[in-house]
């Protein structure tokens, strides 16, 4: 257990890490408000605009919730972008405009997600393939199979189903509420369930967890199933938002690398065992805010890229610099 910095053993560091994502989020918010005031664009300070900002990154947010589980068990998932594409295509092809097919479509997509997650988990645990390679390989396989059958937007989503992406309660979109509810569930699982505490133990120190009687393989597999399920849900959402699915929409949004980036910016450690869902949500909102700041300030697309790269590294350094552990 010595290698596992359980929060209780090191309250000071824990507090910093717990609050670091909040500090980063507040900094981003302050920057945004300052920019709006300096530029005299106070018309952006409305509730509508707040909702617009929060709704920017729902696909990313749902994906990142799942990615948090993978990273917490010291794994990683590069196949999420392909799963998103596959899920979106399957959603729109199965529905094909028919409202009666909504349920079967969602069910088959969730099954697809579960199978992919299971396969990822099994390859990682039983064949002991490095997760980066395992999920990268899986990503290629899914992408290959998908583009064998489809090479454009395929099928379409019935109007009834577009409510998922476009419906609102007052001014708040359903999908935004859905994302936060999903985050709440994830938080609940991690905080209060046996599986949740196992996730932290396995991520913190796999050998110790095994000695403590935890079936570590099952926990890793479980985390990957959750991760792929979330990616599948993100794909369903994207199909609803784009009204159809195409085999490139996951890769186009760079959801694989971006979801890893927001999870890490949210304070979850790549080495596993430390972090949580709300940090990830903070990371997602920070990304949305950065996008909005760039849009308001009219930052050139190329400068945007440079700044985004620096921000990712700087944000992670903000947590990591004081860490005493070696990093990979």
């Amino acid at each position: 257990m010595t290698d596992m910095p359980l929060p209780a053993k090191n309250p000071r560091r824990f507090r910093f890490e717990r609050h670091a994502s909040t500090i980063l989020l507040l900094a981003a918010i302050a920057l945004y408000i300052a920019l709006i005031i300096i530029m005299g664009q106070t018309r952006f300070l409305t509730l509508e605009n707040l909702v617009a900002i929060l709704s920017r990154s729902i696909t990313l947010g749902i994906t990142a919730i799942g990615q948090t589980f993978a990273i917490l068990v010291a794994s990683i998932d590069l196949s999420v972008a392909s799963v998103i594409s596959a899920a979106a295509v399957v959603t729109s092809v199965v529905m094909n405009g028919d409202p009666a097919m909504m349920l079967p479509a969602v069910a088959s997509v969730l099954a697809l997600g579960a199978v992919v997650g299971l396969a990822n988990g099994l390859v990682i645990t039983k064949l002991e393939v490095n997760p980066l390679i395992a999920t990268l390989g899986m990503s290629l396989i899914i992408q290959g199979v998908l583009s064998y059958y489809y090479n454009n937007f395929a099928g379409n989503v019935p109007v009834e189903f577009q409510i998922f992406a476009y419906g609102t309660v007052g001014i708040v979109p359903f999908s935004l509420i859905f994302m936060f509810v999903l985050a709440g569930c994830a938080w609940f699982v991690l905080r209060f369930s046996r599986f949740g505490s196992d996730v932290y133990s396995v991520g913190g120190n796999k050998d110790a967890a095994r000695l403590a009687g935890i079936k570590t393989d099952r926990v890793v597999i479980g985390a990957h199933v959750i991760c792929s399920l979330c990616a599948a849900i993100a794909g369903i959402y994207l199909a609803s938002r784009l009204r159809s699915g195409a085999p490139w929409i996951g890769a186009e949004g760079v959801y694989d690398l971006e979801s890893i980036a927001v999870v890490v910016i949210g304070g979850t450690v790549l080495a596993g065992g430390r972090g949580g869902i709300w940090g990830t949500m903070a990371g997602v909102i920070i990304f949305s805010l950065i996008d909005s700041i760039f849009n308001v300030a009219g930052v050139d697309a190329f400068v945007k890229q440079v700044l985004r790269g620096i921000i990712i590294v700087a944000a992670v350094a903000f947590y990591a610099a004081r860490s005493k552990r070696p990093v990979a």
């Binding site: 990683i76 980036a261 890490v264 790549l270 790269g309 620096i310 992670v316 990591a320 990093v327």
Partner: peptide, 11 residues
């Protein structure tokens, strides 16, 4: 800065 190389070089 102890940033994991995956993230540092991604950035």
């Amino acid at each position: 800065l102890k940033v994991p190389s995956l993230i540092a070089t991604l950035g």
